[in-house]
């Protein structure tokens, strides 16, 4: 039997086992760390003023129309 056979099924079983045996708090802290790490890899971090202002303009173009006056 090829090693590639049933690989996706095996991966699913492995992932489920890892999840069952992982600490929920550790996983949650790792997610937050991963977000911070990914953010730091961006050429222009999402948390920078110019990025925030650009995003705000886009979102206000969509949402301003739904704001009650």
């Amino acid at each position: 039997m090829s090693l590639l056979e049933n690989q996706s099924e095996q991966k699913k079983i492995e992932e489920e086992r890892r999840e069952r045996n992982s600490d929920e708090l550790e996983r949650w802290l790792a997610i937050q760390d991963a977000i911070a790490w990914a953010e730091a890899q961006q050429p222009e971090p999402r948390n920078s003023p110019s990025s925030r202002i650009r995003e705000q303009k886009t979102k206000n173009n969509i949402w301003n129309s739904s704001l009650p006056v």
Binding site: N47, R52, E55, K59, N60, W63, N64, S65, S66, L67
Partner: peptide, 21 residues
């Protein structure tokens, strides 16, 4: 002053919506 606010903070970026389409 407006519908959506995109803020930066030392703890991460925060968006505030006063209405949601």
């Amino acid at each position: 002053s407006q519908a959506v606010f995109c803020l930066a903070s030392p703890f991460g970026a925060i968006d505030i919506f006063r209405s949601v389409q």
